[in-house]
Simulated assay, not measured.
Amino acid sequence: MKNSIKFKNLHLGLSSLTVIGVGFTYGICPNRILPFFFDFEVNSIDLNNVFRAIMGLYLGLAFYWLIGIFKPEYWRNATLICIIFMGGLAFGRIISIILDGIPSLPFSIGTILEILLMFWGIRNLKKDIYFERNQE
């Protein structure tokens, strides 16, 4: 059972670290960092504001997922929110691939990671529910 707990917490931990990293990339200094990674310029206060708001959203979600690791009573909700978040990002990217074509390598890797993290979360949630039902 201990390995199972570590494995299911690993999902939230890796999701948190990934989203924290991406959040900081988007929001620390968008007008300097984002042109380095992506093919666009951030050249207005409003765009800086949008990317810093995205950073805040990402950091807030990652913080909740970390709470789910350390407070077991929040684990299911944190996992469900992680599944919805990763699935929502993947869904949007898939729509973009269909409508716009294949994106650059960083965005393609992001799509794959989001799909993997979504399915890993679904697997963990199903296992947790199955385990709980069989304990009764």
Rank of each mutant, 00 (worst) to 15 (best):
L80H: 05
I98C: 10
S96P: 02
I112P: 00
I115L: 15
L34H: 02
W65M: 03
F51S: 04
N48H: 05
Y58N: 15
S108Q: 11
F119S: 01
G101Q: 06
S44P: 06
I115F: 11
W65Y: 12
L80P: 01
A62P: 00
D46S: 13
N77A: 08
S96A: 15
A90R: 03
E136P: 00
I122G: 03
V50H: 09
I69R: 02
E41I: 02
G110Q: 12
G121H: 06
C82W: 01
T79S: 13
M86T: 04
I95T: 10
L80G: 04
I69M: 14
N134R: 15
R76V: 07
L57H: 04
G56N: 10
D128H: 01
D39T: 06
F85E: 11
Y58E: 07
K71R: 15
E41Y: 06
P103S: 15
Y64G: 09
G101K: 12
I84L: 14
I97Q: 11
G60C: 02
N77F: 10
I122H: 07
S108K: 10
P72F: 09
N134K: 13
L125H: 12
G121S: 05
S44F: 12
L117G: 02
G56Y: 07
Y64E: 03
E114V: 08
Y130C: 01
N48Y: 03
G101T: 08
S108G: 07
I54G: 05
D39P: 00
L59S: 08
L57T: 05
S104G: 13
A90L: 06
P103F: 10
I45Q: 15
L113W: 05
L125W: 06
I94N: 04
E73I: 14
I83G: 00
F40D: 03
